[in-house]
Design a protein around this nucleic acid. Structure first.
Lengths: 338, 338
DNA sequence: TTGAAAGCGATACCAT
DNA sequence: ATGGTATCGCTTTCAA
């Protein structure tokens, strides 16, 4: 059973490619193709399991029913979950997802955007490095459908789906304050990512509103945070800083930090309470279970796909769809109780 | 700056598409294109940032430099890591990865394989549901390059990259035996997956070799394991079964099981020791840290890509490349000490 | 050295 | 109602 082409169906049925194409694309009635002819074609195609070459189809139609997803790293559980939810939602609409990781590298991201465009994806979902302003602006200029997720460019008007970074960290910090903690540390990354900036601001705002004058902020290098965590933690737990709580700005920082606290025999939460922005699957099993802000991954994916597909449908790139989602707050033992 | 096509370059430079195409594909010398002409073309293309339409290119060449990856679920950390390593390695060879999740559904998987073929991927990497024998056989018959990972079909001769499921669980069980445990339970899924069968066999073999007559096996339903875990654990810890150790066959079963053990106030490892096949990122932080068999995700991805690309290069589907990798064994407190 | 033209496999406009 | 044919953008054979 060799590969069957549209041409073959037409020949074998004594019809033209046009007719067959119409029928197979559900445009039979629209083009007044005889119902018998239609059935004949459908039956034949079905029986021989005909499947159109999507390359040819895409080239001809200028549409591929594919969306490109660019994320920093598919191995990160957060992005993996996002990818999963995007794929699921996209599939419901008959779209395929092509993904690529930028590894937080702006140059890579630029190449990926280009590559996706050359592969004629119909639209892009990007969790950007936030260092490619010109490429994003170019997409807008090209009127190419896309939407940013997780990270956005504050200076450019674009569609995006984010979480309320500021509000959720503020909420988490307030929670610690309400539990009587007064010397709260914040461990994050030295980064220009707006999301991380907002998390820091949320932390600071909570302190200010509660008249806490002293903050304990550690911002680690994005490439060197593994090594720097040791020092950061030890500085935060040593007199005169000795914090009584730490807010971590990402799940992997939390994991590293908790490891380090344990190495230092710090008791959680009695000596230092912990709150994590985002979580890992086993955070509820950790000793003690870690209070975490939970990202609404499914909602992020769903919203992104829905907005993007609407743009694709309208063959344009809108920039006025902005979604900011609330995070969940899973209170566990790591932040102690009153 | 509107979209630039090959035709435009040719026209603007007063050359033919052929010449330009040759040069841009690095076949200038081979086709004896004047070096000046070559430079002119290269320069022009570069300056105007020309990028070929990959759809047209693929259609014309019958090659897309794309590999399809079909996995059960991209949201699962294990597959996410695999995907990451495959993507990384593929990228090094100039290949893009298209991925799709089958959700452990044979019908979905069949559709995905079809869909990938229609999209003209050059080859497939599949972590199969192991319920699509006929589709796999079809690929072989089509001489289409592909390789199985993580799961394989024992009855079909194919390329694959697996881990030593039997040996690693045997090793882990022996470890528990060496620590004096004698009533060791095994919690897995009711499944036809060869990998899971092998893990069970490894467990049983360790018992047999050590003259342990009684095994405690719980196989939960693949769709209902969340609910069934409660019962399984309670049965294993109740007289007269009261096990002193449990081996879990997947990371998520471990997480669930440990939660359940904690709910029942079982002390780990003093009352029940734990070993997990595969791990979650925070297993080292759990109370107690969980001894785990570590899957060599990077090696799996690397091997799969390398073997596949060789087949793609040779335009054929080989079936004699079989790689079985050893798992790591990270001994932590959950299995106790001598 | 270079160019013309025939594909690749579909879609869709314009006839009939 | 159906068919002929140009077209999508590129590769590649063959001729010049």
């Amino acid at each position: 059973m060799k590969k069957l082409y549209l041409k073959d169906i037409a020949q074998n049925l004594g019809l033209s490619k046009t007719t067959v194409s119409f029928v197979l694309n559900g445009k039979g009635d629209e083009n007044k193709i005889n119902i018998n002819t239609q059935n004949k074609v459908l039956e034949y195609a079905n029986k021989h399991n005909y499947k159109p070459n999507q390359l040819a189809r895409g080239l001809s139609r200028g549409k591929t029913e594919t969306i490109g997803l660019i994320i920093p790293n598919i191995s990160d559980t957060f992005y993996a979950k996002i990818a999963g939810s995007i794929e699921k939602r996209a599939k419901e609409f008959g779209y395929t997802v092509v993904f690529s990781s930028s590894n937080e590298n702006a140059a890579d991201e630029e190449k990926l955007i280009q590559s996706m465009l050359n592969r004629q994806v119909d639209g892009l979902i990007i969790a950007s490095t936030q260092q490619n302003q010109k490429d994003i602006e170019l997409l807008i200029k090209m009127n190419f459908p896309f939407i940013l997720i997780d990270r956005h460019y504050p200076e450019i008007e674009t569609n995006y789906v984010l979480v309320d970074n500021f509000g959720s960290v503020k909420k988490a910090t307030e929670h610690l304050l309400n539990l009587g903690r007064r010397k709260i540390g914040f461990i994050s990354l030295k980064s220009d990512l707006e999301a991380l900036k907002q998390r820091l601001l949320g932390y600071q705002e909570a302190l200010v509103e509660n008249n806490i004058k002293t903050s304990y902020i550690k911002e680690l290098g994005t490439d060197t945070y593994k090594e720097e965590m040791k020092k950061a933690v030890s500085e935060l737990i040593k007199f005169p800083n000795t914090v009584d709580a730490i807010v971590f700005s990402t799940h992997y920082l939390t994991a590293l930090g908790v490891r380090e606290l344990k190495n230092n025999n710090i008791k959680i939460p009695s000596e230092v309470a912990i709150v994590s922005f985002d979580e890992l699957s086993a955070f509820d099993l950790v000793d003690p279970p870690i209070t975490s802000l939970i990202q609404p991954v499914n909602k992020i994916g769903d919203a992104a796909v829905e907005i993007l597909l609407k743009d694709i449908e309208n063959k344009k790139c809108s920039v006025d769809k902005k979604v900011i989602l609330e995070t969940g707050f899973m209170i566990r033992k790591s932040c102690g109780t009153v």
